[in-house]
Design a protein around this nucleic acid. Sequence first.
DNA 1: TGGATATTAGAGTATATACTCTAGCTTTGA
DNA 2: TCAAAGCTAGAGTATATACTCTAATATCCA
Lengths: 232, 232
Amino acid sequence: MKTRDKIILASLDLFNERGERNVTTNHIAAHLAISPGNLYYHFRNKSDIIYEIFLEYEKLVDYYLQIPDDRPLTLDDMMFYLESVFDGLWSYRFFHRDLEFLLDSDERLREDYRGFTGRCLESIDCIFHGLAEGGVIENQPEELRSAMSLNVWLVVTNWMAFLKTAHGNGLSDELSIHMLKQGIYQVLTLELPYLMPEYREAVMTLREKYRPQLPENGEGMRSASRKKLGNF
Amino acid sequence: MKTRDKIILASLDLFNERGERNVTTNHIAAHLAISPGNLYYHFRNKSDIIYEIFLEYEKLVDYYLQIPDDRPLTLDDMMFYLESVFDGLWSYRFFHRDLEFLLDSDERLREDYRGFTGRCLESIDCIFHGLAEGGVIENQPEELRSAMSLNVWLVVTNWMAFLKTAHGNGLSDELSIHMLKQGIYQVLTLELPYLMPEYREAVMTLREKYRPQLPENGEGMRSASRKKLGNF
DNA sequence: TGGATATTAGAGTATATACTCTAGCTTTGA
DNA sequence: TCAAAGCTAGAGTATATACTCTAATATCCA
């Protein structure tokens, strides 16, 4: 593999694992057993590495969120979208973490990310529209649908952060893609009231599969807090 | 005012304005025209300052979220909760920004924040319960209500971040408490389907007041993105 | 083959950041 | 009144971080 690609991959891994803020260019170089000079031969600076990673993330999500325009959408479609998006979220999970700082320090990224958000919101909106056409959910006025889409976006993009903060010991090892996908439970919760009656039971059953499990460790969370946090 | 209190206030201001990551202890001292030594006489380190600020934030929100146990809740109560919580969010808006890093680097804060999250979720849940008793919203099974509460928490705590990332030019000056409160629109959107019929119209009217306005600048967002982002 | 080009090592630098240390000043209260 | 305690200034330090520079090596291709 080319050094340039190795740098991107290693950076992504390290960012995901330790957070962008805790990973320096020297760390990345050391991790790959290459010199800092070598790294800076391939990338002008750290922001450029992050930007490259973002482009890949963007490409992946755009790919996942393609919507067929020749047919309405089914429940299976919807679940596939959810699964895919959470997969993407997991692979690039560092990104939504220090997002604001990243955007603050790279104008190009800020602009692109804004477009990305716009496209995602539009896709979510289209998916709802397609589901309504497919008779899975009720049709809603445009205004309500786009506000709903935005809520879905907020829940999806911030579920990871919630998990990390809600779990006591900062062991990020604990956080698995499996736990991340419990976010699907939350998204389905959002959609429940809009389902057509004949789909309600099916979705409730699906939803149950993503229901958050109690972390198996007895330690860490005091019983009072556990009660308050419910399943988390 | 005591130097110690001045440090807390100045730190909060600077954190809110520039982000915790961009504010050093030396900046804080310089801003107050005191020496670094003086600052470190009052606080062992930067984390301690942040922790103090958190305690105030926690106290404020806990105060806002007190719930009367001698009567059911009204629509006015609900709006008051929303207004209050968004006020608090605004005053300590730096906090939910670099949250994960803050929690990573201060175990005490991590533990306390977890408890805080738990109490907030419990309060939201209680509010829904009280509203159901007051006949404002339909009563829902416990499981659904707590999942709903969590969605509300996610939307509330991340609305600010969304605004910052969705707005093109990083001019944080633009972001006002007024814009922040448009988050109330999103929360009301979540609640709409659960309202008792006789409250539906009233809430729709209220909601309209918080409806996001187009940013008045013609520049920055390309028309394509504007279309996609809808009202944002 | 051999010169040009691409890649790499590794020492080094400018700057920033969190924090320390000492000495001096101010306030308090017996 | 005066010593103890509290407060403050400001120079200074150890460490980290993003990034540079030069020289050497590998690769390519005419």
